[in-house]
Write a protein that binds this DNA or RNA. Structure first.
Lengths: 345, 345
DNA sequence: GTGAAAGCGCTAACAT
DNA sequence: ATGTTAGCGCTTTCAC
């Protein structure tokens, strides 16, 4: 507490344009103009100065809610993530936030992984009049996307493709990534290569599976050793690996639909008294944090989640601020991250 | 514009109370009441039904921005996280979101780790008229907290204590956690125990350091083998460990200020051709995801980030909705998670 | 260069 | 049981 005569901002019942105007002896709209960098040049320097001083003294901050109501722009972006607790998405979220902040947007974050689906969540975001939406929920439930489109709200998809091209989507080149994985294993001498795929109701799950099958055919290998996990998690990976190893004990290499599935697969391999990579090579997808320190350090495909997040934010803001933008599919180029979970046959 | 009689929602220029009222032939306020479950009983069932049908037909959704302006409540909570990309905070964020959603609040997420400090971020959140603030930024920069208090906005601190008790804070019992760590190492026969502490400008950094020193004194061991890292990261952990091992090569055990520091420490140990835990035991703090699969699986103190997040959200909402709540310090009870990075001397 | 006035869509106190 | 009215704090068009 200061007892001096100073000008500590008085923030009691918050300051408004009106309160600043009264204290300065000018009209509210004059205050608004004086405080707006884009308009203050139309106001006499002397008034601008007095207004600024008084605004500062009162601790005035423009009420974004009132401004939004008036202008119809909230400068708010809704971001729906399939699993907030997943470190890979944390990376993406950080990148989205970073980029949005640069453009002066704030981020309303919701977890779309709940039981009731993403639709109620998106509706809540719409009620809040978000200017745009980033959907990273990979489940291919079109009602959500349809709702966004019919409400005419700018939307981009991340980590998921929308080939109908109704909205722009940012994703890793899943097919290319699986090629990389298969080629790597083939170069190591593997022939019996299996796939623990992601859930079939997710865009990434089916795309990577297809990529795996294509890549296998291209090198004249049998692409049919595939089990789909029920969700992207270590447990689901372990369960899928159990089935897979039961059915095809001859497999010498497994490419997993994502890193968590790969980790679960490795657990199951160890559990059977086998070794990764000595008995079975495993390769993941996404390059989530900490993979370089797990045992064995996981060879994986870098899906560039951070970059995807930044690209998504950029594309979305562009779509909001431009009158019209054509939807497009932006694919990031996956890279093989070579670590120690894969070995020569 | 539709000329047919059908009822596909027309979401052209979005529906308002007014538009529904006109189509129904009643007054806006009647529509408002009919649509509010808490008031619809005051309206004749017949009107309620007609209004509901028309609202549905138009795809009406209450404009939360307009409602906020009118009521002064935004049902928005600002959440400031020190490092969004950190998996431990992802866990916490998920828990906060989960709890807030139950109470009907949405979450505005910002990363407070930027160079300019958290103050501008919090000011932006205030301009958006958030109903409350969760601050997980552990840096002890009081200007932020002072701003929150003088703006009279309900605030809770997570993973950080505020002993002045101006606001409620939720944190792990850092001192207790360090006791657990030290006791565990002592029971394993270690005497030369060192500490890679967190940054000195963070509440957790100094608290855990103090906890370490207290615990060491309690068992009559020398508490002075301490190096503070410059930030919570693997790199900083590795650098601190380098110094520490240079100065006190006799150390047989290291307790780290958090898991990332522990991981960095282990890297440095390996780099020197030593083994963890055979030569040096290491223990972390927080129990972030994936620690059970790193090499060696990291023994750590579970700080219950998810629980802290849920508690914080609950306390905040209580503070918003109750007329008055006394600030308190809620401490979670840390547990030792025994894995394989610690071994008998 | 500044003022006046009209809302944005909603809620709530006050009628009837 | 329903209608009227008065704003919330801001932006913006139109005057002077």
């Amino acid at each position: 507490m200061r007892t001096t005569t100073s000008q500590a901002p008085t923030v009691h019942r918050s300051a408004t344009l009106q309160s600043v105007a009264e204290a300065t002896g000018v009209h509210r709209s004059t205050v608004a103009r004086a405080l707006d960098p884009g308009q203050s040049h139309r106001i006499s320097a002397e008034v601008v100065e007095r207004v600024r001083a008084e605004a500062q003294r009162q601790g005035y901050r423009r009420d974004q809610i009132a401004a939004s109501l008036r202008t119809g722009k909230s400068r708010l972006i809704g971001v729906v993530i399939p699993d907030l607790a997943n470190p890979a998405f944390a990376t993406m979220l950080a990148a989205i936030e970073d980029r949005l902040a640069i453009d002066g947007y704030s981020m309303l974050v919701a977890d779309g992984g709940g039981s009731s689906g993403a639709l109620p969540i998106v509706e809540e975001l719409m009620a809040r009049r978000v200017d745009g939406l980033v959907l990273a929920t990979a489940t291919r439930d079109d009602p959500v996307l349809t709702a966004c489109i019919s409400a005419a709200i700018p939307t981009v998809l991340v980590n998921r493709r929308e080939d109908a091209l109704r909205v722009t989507s940012i994703a890793a080149n899943d097919v290319g990534g699986m090629c990389l994985a298969v080629e790597h294993l083939v170069s190591l001498g593997h022939c019996e290569i299996a796939h623990v795929a992601g859930p079939i109701d997710m865009s990434t799950g089916v795309l990577r599976r297809r990529g795996f099958e294509d890549a296998m055919r291209q090198v004249n290998l049998d692409p049919s050793f595939v089990i789909s996990a029920t969700e992207y998690s270590r447990d689901a990976g372990r369960i899928a690996a159990t089935q897979l190893l039961g059915r095809w004990p001859q497999a010498t290499a497994i490419v997993a639909g994502n890193d968590l599935l790969a980790l679960g697969t490795i657990q199951e391999i160890k559990h059977r008294g086998l070794s990764c990579p000595d008995d079975i090579s495993v390769i993941g997808h996404n390059d989530m944090p900490l993979l370089d320190m797990v045992a064995p350090p996981l060879t994986t495909i870098d899906a560039e989640f951070a970059r995807m997040g930044a690209l998504a934010a950029r594309a979305l803001v562009a779509g909001i601020e431009a009158a019209r933008t054509e939807p497009e599919v932006i694919l990031t180029t996956p890279r093989l991250i070579l670590r120690e979970s894969t070995a020569a046959r």
